[in-house]
């Protein structure tokens, strides 16, 4: 069975688990069978944190990631523990400011100013959603409509518009990156 394995990694409090929840829901909406796992350090903010989504067409025997197709690295602390799991040719999106040394070699790397883009949108906290949109747009993990629907289900109503805007911004950045 072909599996898609995605990791959101960074520092606790960056909304990595939320990103994975949104993707989990979006993939489920598209009829995939998915599993989402998470790991964190015993600190509520800061420290290595990740959430993985593994998806396929059938029942999942092993629900954890073993070979990542995609990695969104929001902070440098997310890189080292994830490096050995990256598949050859995996697509990596890394925040330019907070991930100064992203994984290199045998990966397709996109370094983008996610944090700065989020600040431009008015809230640094949506950097994760921009990254989610960008990675899904680049990798075709799942459709924008499913993600938008999933965001509606997973995020507070008063942040819905901002989150949807961030998703749009992420997808929009695909064109700019590919052009560059």
């Amino acid at each position: 069975m072909e599996l898609t394995e995605v990791r959101f990694a960074g520092s606790g409090g960056q909304g990595l688990i939320l990103c994975a929840r949104i993707l989990f829901r979006a993939l489920s909406l598209e009829g995939k069978t998915a599993a989402r796992s998470q790991g964190y350090e015993p600190t509520s903010r800061g420290g290595f944190c990740f959430s993985d989504v593994v998806a396929g067409d059938d029942e999942l025997d092993y629900p954890l990631a073993t070979a990542l197709d995609f990695l969104l690295a929001m902070d440098q602390v997310g890189v080292a523990p994830s490096r050995s799991l990256l598949k050859k040719g995996a697509l990596v999106v890394a925040d330019q400011r907070l991930t100064p040394q992203p994984p290199t070699g045998n990966v397709e790397l996109y370094r983008t100013p996610l944090t700065d883009q989020a600040i431009a949108l008015g809230n640094i906290r949506v950097a994760n959603i921009i990254g989610l949109g960008l990675m899904c747009g680049l990798g075709g993990i799942c459709g924008k409509e499913s993600l938008a629907k999933a965001i509606e289900g997973e995020t507070p109503r008063n942040f819905l518009d901002l989150n949807l805007e961030a998703l749009e911004a992420g997808f929009a950045a695909v064109g700019e990156l590919e052009a560059a």
Binding site: R21, S28, A34, A35, R36, S37, Q38, G39, L60, P63
Partner: peptide
């Protein structure tokens, strides 16, 4: 892992 796993 199972406690913090999300599945359908």
């Amino acid at each position: 892992v199972i406690g913090h796993l999300q599945e359908t």
